[in-house]
Amino acid sequence: MLVTGQASTEGTASGKVILFGEHAVVYGSPAIAAGLDRGARAVVTRQPSGPSTLRLGDGTVVADASSASDLGRAFSALLEVAPAIPPVHVEARCDLPPGGGLGSSAALAVSIARAAEALARSGEIRPEEGAAIEARVLARAAAWERIFHGNPSGIDATAAAQGGIFRFTRAEGARPITPRHDLVLCVGSTGHPSSTRTTVELIASQHAKDPVLVKRSIDAITSIVGNAVLAIEAGDMRALGDLMNMNQLVLSGLFVSTSELEELCALARSAGALGAKLTGGGGGGCVLALVPPSFRSDGTRDEAREAESAARILDAWRGAEGHYEGFCARIGAGGRSETRGAEGGLS
């Protein structure tokens, strides 16, 4: 979304979860992702002269391609994608934990890029320009993401820009998926940030040493993704949970899981989750747990009972030795998503 004004413009973007297919997507296989309604917001204001500056939290960085700061280099890379953005000051905030695998970096990039694009055009964007501008937004976000992640697939930026649930490949981009029923997910955090660049490079190193083994894992994940699309469209939540567990097993075999991620998954399953897996790069970050759906006698969803089921999972995480935090997200069949906080949840 873009909000325009005379001297400044505002852009917003979604966070994301990867339901299936992380890491395999880097090698051309499909993945399934969904947008969250919590994400990032940026306000961009013109400056009479350079350099461009970005204030995020309590710190401010300068756009500088040679900066010692990754953030400063990423900000510079985003602004320098042709046509370059003239000097600006950006005030940005993100409601996602950094390094959690929830797309905080891409959400920031997309929100900044959207606001900057609108400002560069004095807020006057004709409807026929929309597709071209969104393509530039994604190009700017990709330039930003390469600084942090090395070889990103593009799935985070796509989720940040469009939300909803979609199947994604690097070659074909995003194809929307219409779920038969809402998906109710608990998202739990290890409390330790993950580095997508590190885990992507880890698997690349494994691939160089034993390409056959890594290919088998990627083929397994590809098969899981194909079946997951069918399960989502059919509303088969039990099958979807089983597929989540299978995907987690393959990711563990690729050494991108951790003891904390495994504990969060085990706690969620023991508390009633239909399935659980890491989301994002691994090596830390967050897990997803699928809450069992509840239906009334007339076939409508019993959201109160689903909330009780989600609360049991969140309580299991908080009561563990690690005192893990989390929140519940409902991803709608109509492409909407809403996020519900919990006491002690992520913010």
Rank of each mutant, 00 (worst) to 15 (best):
A115R: 03
L202M: 13
A135G: 06
S104I: 04
A141N: 10
G272S: 07
A311W: 02
G130F: 14
I125P: 09
A113Y: 02
L2A: 02
A307G: 14
D219M: 09
T279P: 01
E263F: 05
V90F: 03
A63T: 05
I221M: 00
W144A: 11
R197A: 15
R340W: 11
G241T: 03
L102I: 06
E10T: 15
G281M: 11
E325F: 08
F148R: 05
L119H: 00
Q47D: 08
G100D: 11
L19Q: 01
L56V: 12
G50W: 05
G123A: 12
S66P: 10
S29V: 11
I232P: 01
P292E: 01
V187Q: 05
T279Y: 05
I18V: 14
A333S: 14
L278G: 06
N151E: 14
G164S: 12
L108I: 14
G345D: 06
F168S: 04
K215S: 15
Q162A: 11
S337D: 03
L108G: 09
A132N: 12
L183E: 07
A231G: 06
A204K: 08
G39C: 07
T45K: 04
G163Y: 03
A68M: 00
A160G: 08
T339L: 11
P152H: 07
P98G: 03
E321H: 10
E303I: 03
G299L: 02
D37A: 10
A161I: 06
L36H: 05
G282Q: 08
V62R: 00
T53Q: 01
A143N: 07
